[in-house]
């Protein structure tokens, strides 16, 4: 117990949280945040290596919807109904959020077809699929900016704008260069984080392949821009029924007031039906 960090002990004492239908409260504890006091102007990078880190995307989606933020979700990986079903498990309805204008959902799987079969006057957000020569993601950025810039007439109904991208590696697979994706993120940061004082959360896969230069450039380039990095990894020893992987939290720019001694923490986790439990390495309840 000697080497344990304070949050670990809290984790162990707490056990399964009674508020299980509310995102992943244990993760909020580790990050020292709640929907009521979410920080603003931050870029959070989610990264997964040898495992699926999408549970973090679901967490942040429901977190920011609960925090009453206006959310623009660029979903390139799964369909709307997939995200909706998972969100319902976490106590949020994406369909209802979309109805009331809180959520702007760009469904990459569906709208990529529109690029080809519908004559469009305005450039489509995914225009790059059609014009490889354009080489940049400006239309996608314009889409995000339009979605998140508050309307002039209405009073600020939502707390702050949030951009969520799942995931940026897909853009590389679709033929964009790493620098083009970095430029897109740069502009989103300048607009969403700095101008509108909102937040941005993006997922990037770590292919673990040193020769995949584009993906490495994207991952490291983004890491240098982020305030917080959450990296999930599969266990080096292989699949395990009771420990699904480990999560490393790295605060890159510690806030001025709290000179944080622990800039990085590592936990292991187990994904359950409606929750994720975190514990110190080697302290899985199944082992103890």
């Amino acid at each position: 117990m000697k080497g344990m960090h304070l949050p670990d002990i809290r984790m162990l004492l707490q056990g399964a949280s009674p508020r299980s239908s509310e995102m992943f409260p244990e993760l909020n504890n580790l990050l020292n945040t709640t929907p009521d006091k979410a920080e603003q102007g931050k870029l959070t990078l989610l990264c997964d290596a040898r495992t699926d880190g999408s549970f973090l995307v679901h967490h942040f989606l429901s977190f920011y919807l609960k925090a009453n933020c206006k959310v623009c979700f660029v979903a390139l990986l799964q369909s709307f109904s997939h995200y909706n079903i998972v969100a319902q498990k976490l106590g949020v309805s994406l369909a209802a959020a979309r109805e009331r204008g809180q959520l702007v959902f760009l469904e990459g799987l569906k709208s990529s077809v529109d690029v080809f079969f519908q004559a469009q006057e305005d450039p489509h957000p995914l225009q790059f699929l059609r014009e490889a020569s354009a080489g940049n993601l400006q239309p996608l950025y314009e889409f995000v900016r339009e979605a998140l810039t508050p309307a002039d007439n209405g009073a600020a109904a939502w707390r702050c704008p949030v951009l969520l991208v799942d995931d940026l590696s897909v853009l590389l697979s679709l033929g964009m260069g790493a620098v083009a994706v970095l430029d897109f993120v740069h502009y989103c940061r300048a607009t969403v984080c700095c101008e509108l004082k909102g937040n941005m959360v993006a997922l990037v896969h770590d292919s673990g392949d040193a020769e995949d230069e584009e993906n490495n450039t994207l991952l490291i380039g983004l890491s240098h821009q982020s305030h917080l990095i959450l990296r999930t990894e599969g266990l080096a020893t292989g699949f395990c029924k009771d420990v699904h992987g480990q999560l490393r939290i790295l605060w890159r720019r510690p806030s001025q007031s709290t000179a944080r001694r622990d800039r990085s923490l590592t936990f292991q986790y187990k994904i359950q039906d409606k929750n994720v439990s975190f514990f110190a390495r080697g302290m899985s309840p199944a082992i103890l």
Partner: peptide, 28 residues
Amino acid sequence: EEFREGFDSDVNSRLVYHDLFRDPLNWS
């Protein structure tokens, strides 16, 4: 804004910031 954060006014008054962050590619 983020770059100047933390400097006192004495230091800030001597900094000239050439902003390439906001619109480097003239998208805006």
